[in-house]
Design a protein around this nucleic acid. Sequence first.
DNA 1: TGATTGTTCTTCGTATACACTTTGTCCGGA
DNA 2: TCCGGACAAAGTGTATACGAAGAACAATCA
Lengths: 226, 226
Amino acid sequence: MAEDLRDKLGAQHLPLRDQVLAALRTAIIDGDYLPGERLTEDRLAEDFGVSRNPVREALRVAEAEGFVVILPRRGAVVASPSSGTIADMFAVRERLEALAARLAAERATAADVASLRALLDQGREATQRQDLARVAELNSTLHLRILQISGNPWLSSIAKSLYLHVQWIFRLGAAERAPHSWAEHIQLVDAIESGDGDRAERAALNHLDAASAAAYENAEGGYAAR
Amino acid sequence: MAEDLRDKLGAQHLPLRDQVLAALRTAIIDGDYLPGERLTEDRLAEDFGVSRNPVREALRVAEAEGFVVILPRRGAVVASPSSGTIADMFAVRERLEALAARLAAERATAADVASLRALLDQGREATQRQDLARVAELNSTLHLRILQISGNPWLSSIAKSLYLHVQWIFRLGAAERAPHSWAEHIQLVDAIESGDGDRAERAALNHLDAASAAAYENAEGGYAAR
DNA sequence: TGATTGTTCTTCGTATACACTTTGTCCGGA
DNA sequence: TCCGGACAAAGTGTATACGAAGAACAATCA
């Protein structure tokens, strides 16, 4: 949404609130703050070495993004993704990523495809090295790249936020599926390169189905603390 | 997302920041603050009769929702929806509302259908009275109700936010299409009542196509002030 | 004319204060 | 022992003030 303005002037200054937000997100995703855990403003301020104001502003955004729940007069707690909402999430993600794949197929330039191919290569290599963390990282990068190629800012920003939640939900456990899913990625990029929107959409749906099934299995374990 | 917690205790206290956010959103949607207009914290604080703190927190959320753009060290301006992003918006909305219609068809209870029918009746009546403002309002209510019936909180919250932007984009101009779109609404509710997911999805897509075409025509005029 | 400088506006972050809620603890009485 | 209320502690919600730094703009000077 209007990135054109954003990098005019006054850019490159990262307000503290944004840094706090980023730190808070990763802390939640990484499990440093567990679902259900109470997040008092003072404590966060101390953890991040800032005053209460930046923390408060970051918390409001984190709430809008669904990472925390704020109870009036009672403060914030880390949200708890229930297995019900996992299915819901994938239902939405399926639609969105299918659209992204179609748009990407219709709009991708040769350079776009090349960058996707490069990611695939790195992924294959990392898979051989059994470097699962790296594979997971490349996995995210690939999906976000496709979103970017789709050229639809709404799609991009919404799916990006969803994607963060996906990572949160199975930061553990799903790693072992990564090598498997990489084969599906190749199909997806092939389809995008072909420029065939229908085919790309089918490939994306196929991938999402498998991922969703895996997530579901994984979710049976449960992760909450409370 | 976790509304179950929300209405436990400490509820019913609406923090100022939420009131400010609501007021800000409607002010932007209603065109009181025009796209491109500068929003200084002091001014907003004065306009709403509060201190700067609640305003700042509301602004961050408004930014996350895409209503304003914040330039570091320069402040906030009302976002400008370009006709490019209108098409993008409808592309996303199409997918999401199609999903919502399908889920609603699959999950709607008799009471749900009855509430939709009631809205249709009110809409027909308002159309006869030529009360376009009321028709537009009922239009929103209907769509949001379907989202709610879908029972998917992600879908609901994302689509709701998109919907606000739709209203923003043609708060004027699209009103005259409302009576026409009402016929499509009846098709949609019929399909939901039938419990046939495919049919509901087709009805939603049909409706969205028409709305998107109308929005596009309407958008040619342009609305920005800058 | 064009570059530089200085002033002003505004945001950003910090600190502080205080009212009000919620929560937890303690104590006395049944 | 158990209950209930008083009381204190913790934490949020809001307001206010202040200093630092960036950005915009006008005035100045070459």
